[in-house]
Design a binder for these strands. Structure first.
Lengths: 336, 336
DNA sequence: CTGAAAGCGCTAACAC
DNA sequence: GTGTTAGCGCTTTCAG
């Protein structure tokens, strides 16, 4: 019942080919014809069937995106960046997750084989990089949003986890800190290792002395882990005058514990946290954050993929890097 | 270059029709033939082209989903529920947002005209309900995820904002509270009005006296608004012994301010907050929350839509309701 | 039980 | 400049 290109052709008194040509702006057409066809299209409210166009052209104008989970707090920002970009370019976004494990991946594989999309954006689920690499080898345009520093053999976008952590270290040192407490995230995440290395290396280089291993406690990105780490520390009586938390929620937990203990932030203890949820990070006026350019990462990744789909070669091998930025909040503490 | 149904047919020595039949389990086929075709399919690793199937059958096996924004903290849970459900049923999910305003909506309209998907799941962007209703009238199966209580004229899924707030009121009353401070969210959200009504009505009915208007302060779902509301209150010297925050972030802010002021929770002041971000809500051991069944809402909505796509009639008119649940945390306070 | 043939709605040579 | 003719890969009558 919907109107097709044939209807438009009939109403305009031309062939389907001609309609197709004005639709796609191909070939030299008589200006009058173009105008007439355009009018009919307008009048009829005709819109080409995406499926038919896809079948005929061999591409779908859809990009697929595979993410480990949609409930990770930072994923929304990335997604928004991606959606905005692909939408602007007239593409659709088909979303997949690996929530059901192996089974999810099997189904995802089917969709790939079914040619449901032209290119893939992926925040690689743990232990899936080989599979993705294979897809890439098989000719599927792929761009990785690299959240854990596995430099793949295909285009990717990443941020400066290492550099951001180094900035945090330098900031704390600049405020006069001498002994930091580091609350990490789950060590299985590459970004955690990067942040840890970036911090400890810079602290060792620019600080009074390297960070002793016992000043690094393993957290899990929750409010509570930050809270507990600080409380434990205070209970143990081991001195510290700064906290570097691997995300904002644990940083908030740390802030909390510090204040409850009657310590002032940043006068007594300065706190810096990586910013996963912008809303959470911005929520405390005393929390200095290392801001991750999540939305920009999504945009850049989508742009990179669309460029490939548009025919451009897969660029150079180097990953696209969008740097973090340090946002200092709270009154500053003068170095003693 | 990819293998098609024709390849399978050739290798199996049958017609495309037969292959199609074993693929779709239609018609009576010779068991031996079925087995043979199956083997060839297996060997060749054949997977039907989604686009071709869609064109031939007139449906895409894809559901569209339109959300106002992907950065809202609670949207991830809903999305995950939706994705899990549609994935399990062999459907794809095409994601759209209205981030770019009117322009987004225009593009979205194109996709719907282009028949890119068979049915629509929607968290209605403000002032878009009429448009969605029209789409529904035009025959597009639609299910609304109703986050602000606009009872539409088509299938929808919602939670008990009113009831959850009533539970919060009863809980606070049970712990002996007599004068609450209410920190709302932006009043333009329907859910805010519902939560406010549910709370105040129950308080008026079961409490010592109705909530006076000046005990209700308008917030914006941030940590800071909760923080400020409490501080202001304390500064004003107006007494209160309970806080009902419209989301978890503002509840955390309130907790924060209370503790900084040396008050104990829940002994001096009990706090209850609606739970937007499960991680945030669970993050404080003293925060009692009204848990929103976000993932279940996503699942239910998807199921409802798939049922329609599967031919079932649009059910009765009543919205599907998934209730909130109250999770009490922290030591209890005995009524005086 | 199985196959031939005619589309689904559109694009892309190849002619005129 | 514009129309004709084949498909894209699959489903679906309609015959046998």
């Amino acid at each position: 019942m919907p109107i097709t290109i044939a209807d438009v052709a009939a109403h305009a008194g031309v062939s389907k080919t001609t309609v197709s040509r004005v639709l796609n702006g191909k070939g030299e057409l008589n200006a009058a014809t173009i105008a007439r066809v355009r009018r009919v299209i307008e009048e009829l409210g005709y819109v080409p069937s995406a499926g038919a166009v896809g079948l005929a052209r061999g591409r779908t104008q859809v990009v697929g995106m595979l993410v480990p989970s949609l409930t990770w707090p930072w994923i929304g920002e990335v997604l928004q960046g991606v959606v905005d970009t692909v939408e602007t370019r007239g593409f659709g976004l088909l979303l997949f997750t690996c929530n059901q494990g192996e089974e999810s991946l099997r189904r995802f594989g089917q969709q790939v084989s079914a040619k449901s999309f032209d290119g893939l954006l992926v925040v690689a689920p743990e232990g899936t990089l080989d599979y993705i690499t294979e897809l890439h080898h098989q000719g599927l345009p792929v761009v990785l949003i690299d959240d854990r520093g596995h430099q793949p053999r295909f285009p990717s976008v990443e941020t400066t986890n290492r550099g951001g952590a180094a900035d945090a270290a330098r900031h704390l040192l600049a405020t006069g800190a001498t002994r930091p407490l580091v609350v990490t995230g789950p060590p299985r995440f590459g970004c955690v290792q990067e942040r840890l290395d970036g911090f400890t290396e810079t602290w060792a280089a620019d600080g009074p002395s390297p960070v002793p291993p016992q000043d690094v406690v393993e957290g899990d990105f929750t409010f509570e882990c930050g809270l507990r780490a600080v409380r434990q520390r205070l209970a143990d009586g081991i001195p510290f005058d700064a906290v570097f938390a691997h995300n904002d929620l644990s940083a908030l937990g740390a802030l909390h514990a510090l204040r409850q203990a009657g310590l002032r932030v940043p006068e007594d203890v300065a706190v810096v946290g990586f910013d996963d949820i912008p809303e959470a990070g911005h929520s405390d006026p005393e929390l200095t954050t290392v801001h991750q350019p999540l939305r920009e990462i999504g945009e850049a990744a989508a742009e990179l993929l669309l460029a490939q789909l548009g025919g451009r070669p897969p660029e150079s091998g180097a990953p696209v890097v969008i740097p973090t930025t340090l946002t200092v909040r709270g009154s500053t503490r003068a170095p003693d």
